[in-house]
Design a binder for these strands. Structure first.
Lengths: 339, 339
DNA sequence: CTGTTAGCGCATTCAC
DNA sequence: GTGAATGCGCTAACAG
């Protein structure tokens, strides 16, 4: 391990000068700068990151908590996070929690051990353990998409889920649908409530009563969509339109509907959320709500770094624009409302 | 920032005792242990990770280099990496390179700055820069799926791509196909050569000449599959079977074939690689080669940590088993070989 | 502009 | 079993 002292001896200067040359070259005369750079090159010297961190008290790393890695929507957010972080000189510690609270706690405690300067939470839970909660003063935390539960208020980058759900519902109603099924993801989250409220508000305006038996699901998986459709099709009056709370669910729904010998959208219309890449290549291409996932990740980092630098936040909640992509999985009802 | 000294004063012992109590409690008498633990609790003390790292010379982190995050196959590998790493007390630094060499260099240099103890490469390039190459003695590096180019030999966890490609080809030939198209991913990689060689070897055995004009593609994207099909369909004799080098390409191919008014598998059979989750829910469900991605990630970590601990490696190349999943995107040729 | 000095927070000899 | 002392590799204050 070649350290700063070796370099300083090689260059015939003090360690301080070496440090300065590397950190702020303008503070050093051109001649010594040259000498030092030669020595650095020759010795193959790279400053020890950990040592620098101990001195400065900054790790220049952030942790990202994500419930699972296989959801391409999350990955797109993390892509944005990664990119923005790198540009700002931060690196990203990956915290795949698999929904486990103890894992969340473990990752979150990285903030307490100076291992990371900030945390981005993609899930909705308060990530710290009971024990740690006392120590969490104003630690930099930002949540994306979801809102973190609990008393502490953290900045959040999110979508107007209420409005998005309204847009979807309006779109379907414009095709004449009046009988709706919903296949939800994580029931306990704010997203769920906002979206459901959005749907119900439009239905109420249209004089349609939402039948709670038409609400199924419980997790953001393909299988949820498959099972959801199976359940909805057993109803006395199956829905003519199914709103899925993410694209994976919608993919499962498309699959199950076709498997039942029904056609999309002639028999049943299907919508998703997220606009995952494959969504456009489904058969039929999926009507879905596009979320600016990449941009959300980027913003999360910017806001987080503001917190880390103790700069005042202009606002504690940012709402990014969605757009409804009307593709071919939605269409007019082909038969009267009665089945 | 509450440090070890505060705790030692609070407990009325030396800092050394506090350190010992936390690291190796058995070295300390039960009474003092109790005192220290109380003080730790009371002060809300957590050891500074960076300081520990400087002392021990170990970061207990590993970097993972991945060309892009949106490919669910990579994500499954990283899930395995993450899991295994956490179990062994390591954390994962995410290095999304987007295929850029300079980004690779930047991440790889983390090994030189003591920021990470080891590196896992999912791409095929030698990750260090020209400048750093001299310094890379025996730094712990493992590659997964791909083999790292260059003189240095690193351990690799991979699939028998040659055999897998042979299995796919045999499967198609058993259905009577004799006219094959191939839509490839990254052309420059070992994977590409192995798979292509596997296909050609079977064709040769069957007395079929592979027409190089039937080889298209160039990246692992859905769009590549779409464009690939468009090209293959312009050939004088379009293929009756198309082998795609990953599932994303195959998804694009399915889409394009259907868009051209042809049916899968009646007109054209399609196969993929990876067995991504959505593959089973395509229309028709995709015949593909299942790779134990999660397991590959786990093994990569185990091998890497062996290197980090300077334990001898039993073998420098591990080949994991694949399995061909025959689903509905492949079937018998419905018309004579001539178009 | 440069060198000296003094730590950052912790782990580890070596005495006792 | 415990404490004092030393140093990991680096940066920052202060002289000069």
């Amino acid at each position: 391990m070649t350290n700063i002292k070796k370099v300083s001896e090689l260059a015939g200067v003090s360690t301080a000068t070496v440090s300065r040359t590397l950190k702020d070259p303008d503070l050093v005369s051109p001649q010594t700068r040259e000498k030092v750079m030669v020595a650095v090159q020759q010795a193959g010297y790279r400053p020890n990151w950990m040592a620098t961190s101990v001195k400065t008290g900054k790790s220049n790393s952030i942790v990202v908590l994500v419930p699972n890695l296989v959801n391409p929507f999350f990955m797109r957010i993390i892509e944005g996070i990664e990119q923005a972080a790198q540009e700002k000189g931060y690196s990203v510690l990956l915290g795949d929690t698999q929904g486990s609270a103890s894992r969340e706690h473990e990752y979150a405690s990285m903030l307490l051990t100076n291992r990371a300067d900030g945390l981005i939470q993609l899930d909705h839970s308060f990530p710290f353990s009971q024990d740690d909660a006392h120590l969490v003063g104003n630690l930099p935390v930002v949540s994306v998409c979801e809102r973190i539960e609990g008393d502490k208020k953290y900045p959040v980058i999110e979508l107007d889920n209420y409005a998005a759900a309204r847009a979807v519902t309006h779109h379907l109603i414009s095709y004449g649908h009046r009988s709706f099924g919903v296949i939800a993801g994580q029931i306990s989250s704010q997203i769920h409530h906002d979206r459901l409220a959005g749907i119900k508000s439009v239905l109420a305006e249209e004089g349609i009563v939402f039948d709670e038996a038409m609400l199924v699901g419980g997790s953001y998986k393909i299988e949820t969509g498959v099972e959801g459709v199976q359940q909805l099709l057993t109803r006395a009056q199956p829905p003519t339109a199914i709103i899925c709370f993410n694209d994976d669910i919608a993919i499962g729904a498309l699959y199950a509907i076709k498997k039942h010998g029904l056609r999309v959208p002639q028999d049943i219309s299907v919508t998703g959320f997220d606009n995952v890449r494959v969504a456009a290549y489904m058969d039929p291409p999926l009507t879905t709500v596009d979320q600016p996932a990449y941009q959300m990740g980027r913003r999360a980092v910017e806001v987080l770094i503001q917190q880390i630098n103790r700069q005042p936040l202009t606002r504690t909640r940012e709402i990014l624009p969605f757009s409804l992509l009307e593709r071919q999985s939605t269409g007019p009802v082909s038969k009267p409302n009665q089945h």
